[in-house]
């Protein structure tokens, strides 16, 4: 068995921002930060969600975006969801890295919060850049601060922290400081830029990718990346810089449910 379907109840719902809710599940999952769950809402759909809580009861954090997430946002404590988890390969914290940088944009912060917690637990010094479109949409800043991470905030509209993108803050930070490793999750165009910045300073980095999943277990092929042939659901969703370099579609397009290419809009 890879990850058996487990139907469980929603234990607790936390409203994080106007558009983001965390759902704490009535189950514990032994997982690494960066691993994900396939979340099934009977009669609606099943989608991959990063695990945002892995110590104690497992949790997922969901941005209201399409039909599925809208339905999920309507769910109440006690409602049931089907979970297949943990799936995929999580972030790798290497023993030799003492000082790490975490860069998260929007809902991409979800898998990075447990990563920061684990890194601190392992005695690493954590710096985080957290970005959102506006102040009220910032996610998990308190979780990073609570474990003692040094936090930089960016908002597109300047309502909090630095006005601009996470990559603007990253550029400034890397001019005066260096890190042993960098972990990036957010919109793909942001990740492309962040990877470039890290690469220019020769900082090994990992990114976490988002693609359309069907099976989530590496069998159907829906999420296979062009160029490298990696399955995002199996070899990923986290990839090292040297792995993602071989994936020609990164930053360019993804494939929809039919397998037709959809190109990213460049900002």
């Amino acid at each position: 068995m890879i990850a058996k379907l487990h139907v469980t109840k929603i234990r607790e719902i936390i409203k994080e921002t106007r558009r983001i809710k965390t759902f704490i599940l009535d189950m514990k999952i032994k997982a690494q930060p960066g691993q994900f769950a396939m979340v099934w809402l009977p009669d609606v759909d099943e989608k991959p969600m990063a695990l945002s809580y892995i110590d104690g009861y497992a949790g997922i954090t969901v941005l209201k975006l399409g039909d599925f997430t809208k339905k999920l946002h309507e769910a109440k404590v006690g409602d049931i969801v089907g979970i297949r988890a943990p799936l995929g390969r999580g972030f790798k914290l290497r023993d030799e890295d003492k000082k790490i940088l975490i860069v998260g944009g929007g809902i991409g912060v979800a898998p990075l919060a447990p990563l920061a917690e684990k890194a601190v637990e392992e005695g690493k010094e954590v710096t985080a850049i957290i970005g959102a479109v506006t102040k009220s949409e910032l996610l998990f800043v308190n979780r990073f601060e609570k474990v003692g991470a040094k936090v930089y905030i960016t908002t597109d509209d300047g309502t909090a922290g630095i006005k601009g993108f996470t990559t603007d803050a990253m550029r400034m930070l890397l001019e005066k400081e260096t890190f042993d490793a960098c972990y990036i999750c957010g919109p793909e165009i942001m990740m492309v830029k962040a990877l470039e910045l890290a690469r220019a300073k020769k900082i090994p980095s990992q990114v976490s990718l988002h693609r359309y999943f069907k099976c989530g277990i590496g069998i159907c092929g829906a999420c296979v990346l062009d160029g490298c042939g990696y399955r995002v659901c199996k070899e990923g969703p986290t990839f090292w810089d040297f792995e993602i370099e071989k994936c020609s579609e990164f930053g360019s397009y993804w494939r929809n449910a039919a397998g037709v290419k959809v190109y990213f809009k460049k900002k």
């Binding site: 379907l5 099934w40 759909d45 099943e46 069907k214 099976c215 069998i219 159907c220 039919a258 037709v260």
Partner: peptide, 23 residues
Amino acid sequence: GHKNPTVIEIEEGLLNAVGLANP
């Protein structure tokens, strides 16, 4: 093809209804 769930593991096998998704 069909909506998810499209592939699930069951005892001794896999059950799939991908619904011939293709481009």
